[in-house]
Amino acid sequence: MSENVPNDLLYTEDHEWVRQEGNLVTVGITQFAVDQLGDVTQVDLPNEGEVLKPHEVLGSVESVKAVSDVYAPVSGKVVKVNSPLQDSPEYVNEEPYDGGWMAQIELTNPDELKGLMDAAAYEEFLKEHEG
């Protein structure tokens, strides 16, 4: 498999990606997760204003063959969600790191980002865990 793991992002063991921009992080699911799921047909997003802790369910991504929860990688308040995904879930397949983003979270504790993997660590994680 040719992994697609951008260098400027952080990653979780549940295959979410995180892009930091100041006090805000944007969250989506990785190319690996997308490849596992196949054609995404439904995306459930959190409500704007919702406050989440790490590992709480942020939403879910459902493909033809499976459903997978997406977890909050950090604690914070959901300030924006990618509502077009409701009607166009295929963006998750087509551009997981761009149009397929799911939610933007205002960081409660920026130190939590240190617990996430960088691109090199995530690639290593994929090699170890997913063969």
């Binding site: 196949g38 054609d39 047909t41 493909s63 033809v64 063959k65 397949n93």
Partner: peptide, 9 residues
């Protein structure tokens, strides 16, 4: 095979 590269749909 569960699917080929073009996908289930």
């Amino acid at each position: 095979p569960v699917n080929y590269p073009s996908g289930i749909l």
